[in-house]
């Protein structure tokens, strides 16, 4: 292994959060593509959504900082405060994700009542007949 590749590897290892994000995102994507069970597809979908939320939180995380409430307003030191906006955005994204999950579970129940199965292969075979 040459030095440049080693350095790249070291840079990657210094960012475990981004590595986690990539792994979780791709894992979710893989589950959505590879599994035939509808519930498993939903789990994959939720992993993808959660990984994006994780990405936002990672970007905005800060060690040793506190909530952005000014105690004495004469001096603002940005390194002491966490930017609240990404967290608030992700609250909205979580709500959107919950709503999506609700709709998808309702659809899954309806599919199960219609076809008596949650396996996509079986369902497609039945609907072709």
């Amino acid at each position: 292994m040459n030095a440049a590749a080693l350095e790249t590897f070291a840079i990657w290892l210094q960012r475990p959060n981004f590595l986690t994000f990539i792994v979780v995102f791709l894992w979710g994507l893989y589950i959505m593509i590879a599994h035939h069970n509808l519930i498993k597809k939903l789990i994959g979908m939720y992993l993808v959504q959660t990984s994006v939320i994780f990405f936002f939180i990672t970007v905005s995380a800060k060690t040793g900082a506190t909530v952005p409430i000014l105690v004495d307003s004469d001096l603002v030191r940005p390194e002491l405060y966490v930017n609240p906006l990404p967290h608030v955005l992700m609250l909205t994204a979580i709500v959107v994700g919950v709503a999506t999950l609700g709709v998808s579970l309702a659809l899954t129940i309806a599919v199960y009542r219609q076809y008596g199965s949650l396996d996509e292969e079986v369902i497609l075979k039945q609907s072709r007949e």
């Binding site: 959505m32 509808l38 993808v48 899954t108 309806a110 599919v111 219609q114 076809y115 996509e120």
Partner: peptide
């Protein structure tokens, strides 16, 4: 209902992605 359910499900999966 019927076949629309499974198409809606696929639409949902891809749309959310």
């Amino acid at each position: 209902g019927g076949r629309a359910l499974i198409s809606a499900f696929r639409y949902l999966i891809l749309g959310t992605l």
